[in-house]
Design a protein around this nucleic acid. Structure first.
Lengths: 194, 194
DNA sequence: AATAAATGTTAATCTAGTTTAACATCATTT
DNA sequence: AAATGATGTTAAACTAGATTAACATTTATT
């Protein structure tokens, strides 16, 4: 099937033997979602941790006023899930929705727990992955406090230029924590270099 | 010495034998810092991961305008360090400073790496600790986007009432991402219930 | 090709939170 | 007890970004 991207990714963190790779592959499922389909929904228990082979997802929270707030976009070679819901098997705070047709490799909760036992090396892998995610999240909090919306947009553009091409602007505004109208204004300011 | 709080804490996540506890203790150092002392400084490489036995620290970033932004407070039974700097041994984005006299247990980078090899169980421990930290961080991003400053303050008060008692108000304002003057205004609004 | 739906822009008005600055209170040191 | 420094309050003027609403452009559907 199409597990190579996952195995290549894992081998950047830890080394698996061919037998270990076989065990791992036996416990995962390859799935296809269409654009707009939900992988996981706010209020439900998030059933899988997902590694993206192709496509793009957004992870977002709908607040009490009905407003969407995007916490992350995920593309090829990234993970997507509501981690809080997944690890504690409690109702999710976030929706995970495909914004392109998306192919991913799913780890269910029980299968991942079984894999941790069968392949203790995976503890290290996921420790390292989550360390990085946590660090990025802390830095984002600081950027949100210390930078203006324009500065944050320019950093986003620089860091995730491919994502910017693939995603409608009103979603980028949501990710940056501003309205689509204000992002529009920022872009026109940049064009007329003010 | 005074390792019991750390061992009790660890035993909530994983079970260590007495021999394993001995190995762990042999690789850590108990240290005392005075109020206002820095455990780690922005620009330096963060040399330790620290478990707090007693006291309180703040982790903050100083931006280009010289403004302080607090990302977290840490008290007894929590960890404190610039994780990004620590795990990649690169210059820190954050300062970690004691806001009370603080006693803590330090894991240096090399000792922690050695411990991961000697006691692979610790990978699971730190995986779980960081999972929780990441989840809290993601939720905070959403709260910062979807709630007003007053709502965020009330949630902080509810969740961390003991910290509120121990820390000056201007630091709480910094943690909430607002000015001390505006926090003052919010508090007076709450008193006169508006 | 025409229509509808989704996405993006512009501009006026409004507001949550900042800035500045003066003053008040509390704690610590001499 | 006085003096100094740290912390907290109040109020007026200001601004980054939100809201509303009308319109423009692009994309998808018939």
């Amino acid at each position: 099937m199409n597990h190579k991207p996952l195995l290549d990714y894992i081998n950047k963190y830890i080394n698996l033997t061919v037998e270990e790779e076989t065990i791992l592959i036996s416990k995962v499922v390859l799935r296809n979602y269409l654009k707009d389909q939900y992988i996981s929904q706010q209020g439900d228990i998030c059933k899988s941790a997902n590694f993206i082979i192709s496509g793009c997802t957004k992870t977002f929270h709908v607040d009490m006023a009905g407003q969407e707030h995007i916490v992350m976009f995920s593309v090829e070679d990234w993970w997507t899930s509501d981690l809080g819901s997944f690890i504690s098997q409690t109702p999710a705070d976030f929706n995970v929705q495909c914004i392109e047709n998306t192919q991913l490799i799913q780890f269910t909760y029980d299968n991942l727990e079984a894999l941790y036992t069968a392949l203790p090396k995976l503890e290290r892998l996921f420790r390292k992955i989550i360390e990085r995610a946590f660090i990025a999240s802390q830095k984002r909090i600081i950027r949100n406090f210390s930078l203006t919306a324009k500065e944050r947009y320019l950093i986003f553009k620089e860091a995730y230029s491919e994502i910017e091409q693939r995603v409608p602007q009103y979603m980028i505004a949501s990710y940056l924590g501003i309205t689509k109208e204000f992002l529009s204004k920022i872009k026109s300011q940049i064009i007329h270099n003010q």
